[in-house]
Structure formats: C-alpha cells, structure tokens
Design a protein around this nucleic acid. Sequence first.
DNA 1: GATGAAACGTTGTGGTT
DNA 2: AACCACAACGTTTCATC
Lengths: 152, 152
Amino acid sequence: MESNIKIDALNWKILNLLQQNARESFANIGRSIGLTAPAVGERVKKMEDAGILLGYNATVSHSLTGHQLKAIITLRAFMGKLKPFLVLVSTFDEVINCYRITGNENIVMEVVFKDQFHLEQFIDKLIQYGETRTNIVLSNVISNAPIRSEPA
Amino acid sequence: MESNIKIDALNWKILNLLQQNARESFANIGRSIGLTAPAVGERVKKMEDAGILLGYNATVSHSLTGHQLKAIITLRAFMGKLKPFLVLVSTFDEVINCYRITGNENIVMEVVFKDQFHLEQFIDKLIQYGETRTNIVLSNVISNAPIRSEPA
DNA sequence: GATGAAACGTTGTGGTT
DNA sequence: AACCACAACGTTTCATC
C-alpha cells in the first residue's frame, strides 16, 4: 500500500514544481531538473502510489465565486454532541477545512460565506451542538504554502 | 485585469472537475460536459485571466514528508509587534496558512512540525511578538474542500 | 534511466451560428 | 461571442535496452 520510498533531492524538486503548478508537463519538469519525461512520469507515479502526492487541485478565488466573507469558527461540543456534529459537518459546503483539536474547544473550522446573513444562518445551525466562537478573517497573510524539504 | 465574466453552469462543472483533479485534460473535461477541447481551453483561459482560477497545486502528504505534528496557533500581538510579526511569518516554512482575524487574538495559523521539539522551538520564536495559544490537531475532518456554486 | 514510436492532448486558424 | 473542425505541434506512455 504505502511502499516506503525515499524522497531524494530530485523528488523534492518535482514536488516543489508540482506544488507551484500542478499542470506543469512532465517534459518541462524533466528539462528543469535534468531528467527525461518518462523518468519524471515514473517518479510521480511512485510518489502517488506511496501516498506522498495526494492529488492535484485547482485553486479558486473565494471572493470571485461569491464568498466575500471568511471566518474561523471553533466549537466546544456539548456532551455526546461531538460525534453527531462530525457526521453533519461533512454536509456543509461552506466548510473548507475542519480539524479536531486539543484544548478547551474540540473543533476548529475555516468557513466561507456569501454575507453576514449567511454566517448568521450557519452559526444558528451549530448552537444545538455546542458553544461556538467566531473570528472574522480580515486578510490572508499566507495561503496554502507549499511543503518544503524537512529541515536537516 | 479582472474582466467581469459570468460563471455559468458549464464553467461551474469545469471548476468542479479541476478542483478535483487539476491535471485532468481539457479533452476529457470536454467529454464529460459536452464541449470540445478547444472550447474548454478557452473557458479555462478566460477564468484564469479573470482571477477566478488562481492556480493549480499538487497536494502533498504532511506526515509522509516528515511533518507528523500539526497545530493551530493563535497570536495576540504586543503593542507595535503585529507589523514586525507579519514580515517575519513569511519566512517560516512551517506555516501553511496564516490569517489576520478579528477578536481577542490578531492572528491564527496552521503550522506543521517534525515533532514536539520543533514545535517548542517555533513557539519560542513567537514569545517576543505576543501571547500565543497552541492547539494540537488530532485529526483532519475536512481538508481543502472544493468551492461549489453559491447557494441560490 | 534513456530511446524511439504510437496514442493522446493542446493550441492556433478558419469557419459557422 | 461562443463554439466546432481540422491540423500542427508537444506530451504521455509503452516497449525495449
């Protein structure tokens, strides 16, 4: 399943290039790093099979697709309400990221909205599951930064 | 710059497919939605030019690239320390996402680490900028969900 | 990994509605 | 303005070494 392959310097270069532009051709990548296209293709396939390369995703503007408002929402679930919440949250299109965390709250989410009415509706849906805290996102300082070779 | 183009039903289908697999060929996308490859290519180019399609990014496993620990870290900056922090944070490879937010804290970050020693080092770098709060991520409930057509 | 060849995809031109 | 058809060119993928 997850064969234990090593990420050498060339594979890190491939990962960096694909994180920057997932539609880059294997031929071009090969030219950048001194390999032929089939060699790049094989390395990519092995990293996909190993679970290192999880997928390729287009990034879409939130604001230009009608979601001008973003919030970080945490949930402190009531007794017995965490499991039902976890089932429910997968049905919410607004939730971009959702993590279970340690600490006073159980859940932190990154959520996008059309406007404050949409946000209000969303919070109303959560009140039966626990106490929420909402922080509006004012600006993006860093968005989906690429993973780099681990420090030595 | 940002021509005001409309995202019709076909463009939403293209956005959905590219969010799921950014390396999907225009020819295949065309077959799925009943368009020729050049027509898909033109629509994609227009959405790129309009700033709707921001880019294509490979998604890489955090754990299999040596980052077994993830945390949500918030910062309540000391007087005059927010601007210097914003400059500094861009130099941190560990920070995947960083947002400026409303509320008691000024900043929330999603950060990946090799281990708890690496986390400790990171927090030490922040203490001069403000008070931090750290929540360890136990599991991913939703990761980078695609944006869907806004609700009617 | 490289090479070479066949299949496939992309992209430009021209034409249709 | 959006799309299709066609063709030239580049890319992917498979075989073989």
